[in-house]
Design a protein around this nucleic acid. Structure first.
Length: 302
RNA sequence: GGCCUGAUAGCCAAGCGGUAAGGCGAGAGUCUGCAAAACUCUUAUGCGUGGGUUCAAUUCCCACUCAGGCCU
């Protein structure tokens, strides 16, 4: 009989909130292993910019360094690998600790999203990308009026999402979004700071990465390994802004300033996701210190 | 002391007689295969101050204040 049955812990929070440290501490105390829930830490060679902090891990970790940055990764792959890793950890009688800031990835695992079978169709995407949002929307409307009617202003203008709808419809005419039953009993722990402190932590960390950790060198390395500027830009934040800097599109000081703002804006978007998850009924236990988290876990595992 | 130019939201900035573009930032959101991505909404009853002209002024005129430049 496995010790932890089907219980898992999930540690979430905005960037620069110290999730990794907390996750490692808990893993040490409760015989756990960490499953990263970070859409960028899956890539090899992207360490400083994504804040992998591999030297902090004193326990086994999963879903870090599992993909090449040259090959696109996505939610479906993540979900599959995460389920596999969690199942494996549980089988060995240990406690899986999901930890990360990618809200969608986290929720897809915790709430057991039933993703469409429709695979990505590069040729179709390329074709559709040439159309405007309005054209894409009209196309969707004629193919699936019910889905189109449900879209809000934001989705109607979002080409990327419209294209995915059309892509799914081309392979699966009657799909709908579904959540499965939760696979695991999950304790959600959120790490949060007030905005000023978060802002300070972000800026401080950014300067450390630039001045002490040679983050720019990391990006130059990725380049010399053949990663395109476009790929770098698409990874966002440090990879995007430093990429622009290296191409001479931004002077250094401006790059630092704009990147800092972008990271903070990202942190706010993460928080928005978590708020939304709560509105949907998730119980997130927000903690200020690791002691409190430990207590929650102890209680949860009883 | 004299002359010139400018003064529009937190910042940058367009408008120059008919009732305040845009960008950035900020705030709030959307989200089921690119999610650190992509996308949406909100954000000046007000245009340095005081007068005047006009049906109507942020736009024209006068004075003042401040800033920058030039001259003595």
């Amino acid at each position: 009989m496995p010790k932890y049955n089907n219980k898992i812990i999930a540690i979430l929070g905005p960037t620069a909130s110290g999730k990794t440290r907390l996750a490692v501490e808990l893993a040490e105390k409760f015989n756990g292993e960490i499953v990263s829930a970070d859409s960028r830490q899956v890539y090899r060679g992207m360490d400083i910019g994504t804040g992998k902090d591999l030297d902090e891990y004193t326990v086994p970790y999963h879903l870090i360094d599992v993909a090449s940055p040259k090959i696109s990764f996505d939610l479906a792959k993540y979900q599959k690998m995460a389920f596999r890793a969690i199942g494996d950890i549980l089988k060995r009688g240990k406690l899986p600790i999901l930890a990360g800031g990618s809200g969608l990835y986290l929720q897809a695992v915790v709430d057991n999203y039933k993703l469409s079978e429709a695979k990505k169709d590069l040729a179709l995407r390329k074709k559709l990308e040439k159309l405007s949002a309005v054209e894409l929307f009209l196309k969707l409307k004629s193919l699936a009026p019910k889905i189109a009617a449900k879209l809000n202003q934001s989705d109607k203008n979002n080409k990327r999402r419209l294209i995915r709808y059309l892509e799914i419809l081309s392979q699966d005419e009657n799909f709908k979004n579904r959540k499965g039953r939760r696979k695991y009993e999950t304790l959600l722990i959120g790490v949060k700071f007030n905005k000023n402190i978060l802002q300070q932590r972000i800026f401080k960390r950014l300067l450390e990465r630039l001045k002490e950790q040679n983050m720019i060198g990391e990006i130059e390395n990725l380049r010399s390994n053949g990663l395109s500027w476009k790929k770098l830009e698409n990874f966002g934040l440090e990879y995007r802004f430093i990429g622009w800097y290296l191409q001479g599109k931004l002077p250094y000081d401006e790059m630092v300033k704009k990147l800092n703002i972008a990271i903070y804006q990202f942190a706010k978007r993460q928080l928005t996701w978590f708020k939304r998850w709560e509105k949907q009924g998730a119980k997130i236990n927000w903690v200020k210190d690791n002691k409190k988290a430990e207590k929650l876990v102890k209680e949860f595992l009883k």
